[in-house]
Amino acid sequence: MTATVAEKIRSRLQVRRDLPMPEERRAIREAADLSQQELADAIGVTRQAVSHWEAGIRTPRGIFLDRYIDAIRAMRDRDAA
Rank of each mutant, 00 (worst) to 15 (best):
M1W: 14
M1K: 12
M1Y: 13
T2K: 14
T2S: 14
A3C: 12
A3G: 11
T4V: 08
V5P: 08
A6P: 09
A6V: 15
A6E: 15
E7Y: 12
I9E: 09
I9D: 08
R10Y: 14
R10N: 15
S11E: 13
R12Y: 11
L13M: 06
V15N: 11
R16M: 13
R17C: 12
D18I: 09
D18E: 15
L19N: 04
L19T: 06
P20G: 04
P22F: 06
P22I: 07
E23K: 13
E23I: 13
E24F: 09
R26H: 14
I28D: 06
I28E: 05
R29K: 09
E30A: 15
A31D: 06
A31V: 10
A31W: 08
A32G: 08
L34D: 03
L34W: 05
Q36T: 07
Q37V: 12
Q37P: 08
Q37E: 14
E38R: 05
A40E: 05
D41E: 08
A42F: 08
A42K: 09
A42C: 04
A42Q: 12
I43P: 00
G44D: 03
G44E: 03
V45S: 01
T46L: 03
T46K: 01
R47T: 05
Q48H: 06
Q48K: 10
Q48D: 07
V50Y: 02
V50H: 04
S51W: 11
S51L: 10
H52K: 12
H52W: 13
W53H: 03
W53E: 02
W53R: 04
E54N: 03
E54G: 01
G56V: 02
I57W: 10
I57P: 01
R58M: 04
P60T: 00
I63G: 10
I63N: 10
I63M: 09
F64A: 09
F64L: 08
L65K: 06
D66P: 08
Y68P: 00
D70V: 11
I72K: 02
R73T: 11
A74T: 05
A74V: 00
A74K: 01
A74F: 01
M75A: 02
M75Q: 00
M75F: 04
D77I: 09
D79A: 15
A80R: 06
A81M: 03
